[in-house]
Design a binder for these strands. Structure first.
Lengths: 342, 342
DNA sequence: TTGAAAGCGCTAACAC
DNA sequence: GTGTTAGCGCTTTCAA
């Protein structure tokens, strides 16, 4: 007597209805070329009819893989405009799906920065990770590498000379270079840099784009360089000081948050953004897009970043254990009113 | 001869080392009370020693469940400040983890709005869904209900009198009521509403909070009601018109995007936000938080929403097939300079 | 080209 | 309390 159909159809159900063995059905799905055309057609028809889809858990168990990519998500930092985390996550989800993966989110809570990774890895709940919080001496990357866990980092390993793992990053210096060149084109010569005080390698990188471009154009940078915490208030104060002491006509900022501070000071002083003093931010956050004046901002190509990450991940998981690979992508500049004289 | 230790330790490994049967190890994990204290201790020690964690796929296959909650993620809408999607997603991830679940993201791409759901469901890749795009006649909710898929909606089913599925939502009317009451307290009497033109039930709901509060205070609403598309530019124009025709001293807006438009008009006219004309937005987006003036905004309790959703989901999956449940949560008001006279 | 057998690692049911 | 048996649904040998 045949089993009661409690839930979803299984491979066996399809096989029975199609009058073939289970293996043939499996082949129809995974190695269609092995079947004779008419058999394939018949099996496919039954699959369609039944709305059959291979059980994930069973396949995972057998294949020793989950088709899941783990991504640790942090709490949104309130009061800042920097992270475009949701844009990146969506890009990653879309790119992963193209490659047959799904994204599993886990929480970055707790003291130990690797706990979440360890648990998922030991339980073979995910095939690989995408690590986003890559800073100097990133403990996750180190741990994952040591444990042989496949992963790709969004962000360069700033410390290692010869990185041991693959990464994809956006060229921050190229971004600020774009911004500075754009301002020079607009006729500015006194272009200030507003960066982060506790300077991360990321902040340093972004700063070099401004500095190098200024140098290239023979423009002075003395007194035009300020560093503050990544807050609107601090940026506003720093902008005020800069305006008083160095009279810049343009600001390149390490973040949209800082740019907002500059705009605040301009507003207080009745200085028109764009016409009187130009401002450029970094990240093309929603704030930059929605701010009434329209904040010009460096935009990271997160869609491309995601595609590259998934590509590397696929080759990693595909067994092609190639050399660690680093990909550096160029950002673009979203030009808006805050940097236009018109 | 014993098997080669290729990868992770299994239940059998633990059992062998602890000198017990596999079942005993399983019990140590899932039904600790069944074991004698010393046995439990011994098993636990070996588990610790080996860094053992049950294989997810095997457990999933056996339990016919994945401990995964599916969430469809849409592309970020550029140029608006409304969605606090990342805040919600993180809240959901955190709450899920507390309950032993993880969040699986999939993409909302394609013509057919239920494709992604259907695929995951048929493959038993997820145990349940969280549906966020709940609007009138929501096709996903209908489809999921018809297919007996467990899910909870973030958002009320506006059409049904007796909803067939569980939902959690934020009381939009209560939010705009808070906003309006706050403005009345600040001494405003001519408080305008700036809402959406193609009015969704959500927009209508938010509007009623303003209208009812105005009525309660015996304040006129004629000519103080404008509807536009959800864009900064349209909002700016509408605000200008309202200022000319009805001279409001305060604006309650259906979104932060609209509020930005109002602020833009105020800026152009050299009207000080807060001091001269008050503005309140909706969603407490990053824009509201970072905008130099500080935009007062209705804040959805997304953390609580996530907790409630997971609670309902857990009971749904726990077999307690209770009646569909609806939970309406009250938002709060994040008060900032844009609504303060001081 | 197709079929039969084995087993991935786990837990529910039942014996002891 | 603990051990034995069976089987979740799939894919990878190997044989026909």
């Amino acid at each position: 007597m045949s089993k009661v159909q409690t839930g979803h159809p299984t491979l066996a159900d399809v096989a029975r209805l199609a009058g073939v063995s289970r293996q043939t059905v499996s082949n129809a799905l995974n190695n269609p070329d092995l079947l004779r055309a008419d058999t394939l057609e018949r099996v496919r028809q039954v699959i369609e009819e039944l709305g059959y889809s291979p059980n994930r858990a069973a396949r995972n168990l057998r294949m020793r893989s989950s088709s899941l990519i783990g991504l640790r998500m942090h709490a949104v930092q309130e009061g800042t405009a920097n992270a475009a985390m949701d844009r990146f996550i969506h890009s990653l989800v879309a790119a992963s799906e193209q490659a047959g993966y799904h994204v599993l989110l886990f929480d970055g809570v707790g003291e130990d920065p690797v706990t979440g990774y360890a648990d998922l890895l030991r339980a073979t709940a995910v095939d690989a990770f995408v690590v986003t919080d890559t800073f100097l001496g990133n403990p996750q990357a180190k741990w994952l590498h040591e444990h042989g866990a496949p992963f790709v980092a969004f962000g360069r390993p700033w410390d290692a000379e010869a990185p041991r793992h693959s990464w994809v990053d956006v060229d921050g210096a190229a971004g600020t270079r774009l911004a500075t060149e754009h301002l020079v084109e607009q006729g500015h010569t006194r272009i200030a840099w507003l960066g982060w005080r506790h300077d991360s390698p990321i902040g340093q990188d972004r700063r070099t784009g401004w500095e190098a471009t200024m140098r290239d154009h023979g423009l002075a940078t003395d007194d035009l360089d300020a560093r503050v915490l990544d807050s609107v208030e601090d940026a506003a104060r720093a902008a005020a000081t800069l305006l008083d002491t160095a009279a810049p006509t343009a600001f390149v900022c390490a973040s949209d948050t800082l740019a907002m501070g500059v705009l605040h000071t301009l507003w207080i002083r009745q200085i028109a953004p764009g016409r009187d003093v130009a401002v450029v931010g970094f990240d093309d956050s929603q704030v930059a897009q929605v701010f009434p004046v329209g904040l010009t901002s460096v935009r990271q190509p997160l869609e491309d970043v995601a595609v590259e990450i998934v590509r590397i991940l696929s080759s990693l998981l595909g067994g092609r254990g190639a050399q660690p690979e680093g990909v550096l992508l160029a950002p673009t500049l979203a030009v808006r009113e805050s940097s236009l004289r018109a």
